[in-house]
Design a binder for these strands. Structure first.
Lengths: 150, 150
DNA sequence: CCCTTAAAGGACATGAGGGTCAATAAAATA
DNA sequence: TATTTTATTGACCCTCATGTCCTTTAAGGG
């Protein structure tokens, strides 16, 4: 049971790394080194963020990428949408293809509410929250999560 | 955002079809015809259910498959476990590999609770509930779901 | 203008999920 | 026993997510 893909996870980690950096701009290579994500693949992921306008980029000498907005203004949902292009529609909770809005399966309404709840979290959570997580992580801290036990 | 795989969905539909049938036993071919699932693939899926002891089978002339227990005694979770062999562990809500129980991401606790809620639904919901769904479907009925709006 | 540098982009590799097809094994019946 | 029937099994194919490698394009600095 997964919500965001591993690739979207990479995007989040990379952007959090960028947002947490003291310098405004970073090279993909630096981010890859810090996060441990494979550089060549991360470059492809970053490309999608550039296309979506989440980050801006500059080529060549002294090039790199930088956030197009404040971290508090970039939601996880937005990052996910940027990365997951041509996303297949959500399946029924039970995986049944015969389940539809008109003829709901026994878990249909429950699942609809749950999906909506998750979607709400994703639009509420911003890069700032992730940065706090990353900082805490480096400090060996186990500080409380911004959203609590939900 | 998917919970059960398409293949598990096939298993549920097939078992519901079997449970709803007036005859105790059905051939895979019949179930495939009624559900619209590809026969050759359904045979493989059914095989996993046989191995897991959810259904029994008989080969040759007048052979077929039949439920090993009452439909009210077969949970969706059990079907899922039977089908999903070697299932990879659940990812963090945010897809971050660096998230763990020791150093939780900002959505960790929330996601843990949500996962548990879904798991509970899956262990509560039985084949009987699905059969009711299928029967209502054939009748063009839009009857209420056994579990309500959750 | 030439060289270096870093993002952009294309070609290809790999593994899992979903799916097909043909061969094999057991069960009933003629 | 021979034939039919149906589950079982193995080999193969397609698509997609993930990932690597190599070339191309733009931007600065000498």
């Amino acid at each position: 049971m997964n919500v965001l893909s591993q690739t979207t996870g990479y995007a989040i980690e990379a952007l959090a790394c960028l947002a947490a950096s003291s310098s405004k701009s970073m090279m993909v290579r630096e981010i890859a080194a810090e996060t441990g994500i494979a550089q060549a693949y991360l470059a492809k992921v970053v490309q999608r963020l550039v296309v979506a306008g989440v980050v801006d980029s500059k080529r060549g000498y002294r090039g790199g990428i930088y956030l197009s907005r404040s971290p508090s203004d970039i939601t996880i949902k937005e990052i996910d949408d940027a990365v997951e292009i041509n996303r297949p529609p959500d399946r029924c909770l039970l995986g049944m293809t015969s389940c539809s809005e008109e003829r709901a399966c026994p878990a249909h309404d429950y699942w609809k509410e749950t999906r909506e709840s998750v979607r709400h979290r994703l639009t509420t959570l911003t890069l700032d929250d992730i940065v706090a997580f990353e900082i805490g992580r480096k400090a060996g801290d186990s500080g409380s999560s911004p959203l609590g036990a939900g």
